[in-house]
């Protein structure tokens, strides 16, 4: 791995990282404050009349007036939030598998084969991201629900999310595959291996970092989506977690920001867990170079 930064003292790197951590964490601490306040209000600073500097300093520190886990309890007890999380997990996991599968195969073809339509195909994947999605809700509804009869079905969502994630994943993987030396495959070809075998046995194991990134991306695409999930699902037991979260706010009714914050924290946990799991691929010593050497 890179040695180039060895001459920068770690102290300065830590200083920068700690600063970034503070910036990153501060708004999230406010989310936590709302979640653990036991109240429903979105937080603003609370100042006494004619505040002193000290009052202001105290006011900008995110901390609830009293700590309570009531919001978390209510989120799970007053609606089937656990079920919704499970649905989300199912859809997101399936999207990840499907998205990564479709993207690795396509990415591999774009990287390794020279065939007519290759550039056009790649550009069409890129271009597909450029058309704004504001007007596509009704056409997508027609395709999924009326044509494919996948209303209120996990598969409908999985298909939608996979295709949303594919273009980025294909490009990402194609770029990574390009960096893997061809000599490895050529020697395998000599040994009589088919393209499919080379792909599964040689290329994929070498591409773990890129697959990890695309897996995380596919997962996130499915995990946070809200409008399609809501439009397609016609049973409460089929809703996903982001749909469930939106129950707490919006419209002319009381705004349950406490529940929303608590639910958001809970929804972030699986993402963190997935990242913890995937990050060993992001920093693994198993690089193309290592194998090559």
């Amino acid at each position: 791995m890179s040695n180039r930064n060895d001459s920068v003292p770690h102290f300065w790197l830590h200083l920068f990282l700690v600063f970034m951590v503070l910036v990153t964490v501060y708004p999230i601490l406010w989310v936590l404050t709302v979640a653990f306040s036991g109240q429903q209000a979105l937080m603003f600073v609370d100042l006494p009349p004619d505040p002193s500097v000290l009052d202001r300093v105290r006011a900008v520190v995110p901390w609830p007036a009293q700590v309570s886990v009531q919001n978390f309890v209510d989120v799970f007890s007053q609606q089937p939030f656990g079920r919704w999380l499970l649905n989300s997990a199912l859809v997101a996991a399936a999207t990840t598998v499907m998205g990564v599968f479709l993207a690795t195969t396509a990415g591999y073809a774009f990287s390794r084969f020279r065939f007519p339509g290759r550039r056009a195909g790649m550009m069409s994947f890129l271009i597909s991201q450029m058309f704004p999605g504001t007007l596509t809700l009704v056409p997508l509804y027609i395709i999924i629900v009326q044509w494919l009869h996948l209303g209120s079905n996990y598969l409908g969502l999985i298909l939608l999310y996979s295709t949303t994630a594919i273009p980025f994943c294909v490009w990402m993987l194609k770029g990574y595959f390009d960096t893997i030396p061809r000599e490895l495959e050529e020697s395998a070809l000599m040994d009589g291996a088919s393209p499919a075998v080379i792909f599964w046995k040689i290329i994929l194991p070498l591409s773990k970092p890129a697959v990890a990134v695309t897996a995380l991306f596919s997962f996130m695409t499915a995990w946070n989506e809200f409008i399609l999930a809501l439009t397609i699902m016609d049973q409460e037991s089929m809703y996903t977690a982001p749909v469930g979260l939106r129950f707490f706010v919006g419209g002319f009714a009381e705004q349950q920001w406490g529940y929303f914050a608590a639910g958001s924290i809970v929804a972030a946990l699986p993402v963190m867990a997935l990242f913890l799991f995937l990050q060993r691929f992001l920093i693994s010593g198993l690089t193309a170079g290592a194998v090559k050497g």
Binding site: V21, I28, V31, S264
Partner: peptide, 29 residues
């Protein structure tokens, strides 16, 4: 680049914290 520096300590901690803005639903943040 910084998180790729060899022998820098607490890297897993930094990594997991720094991905938080992506992980928490952005509607509320």
């Amino acid at each position: 680049l910084i998180l790729n520096v060899k022998e820098l300590r607490f890297k897993p901690f930094y990594r997991i914290i720094l991905i938080l803005p992506w992980a928490v639903p952005n509607y509320i943040t």
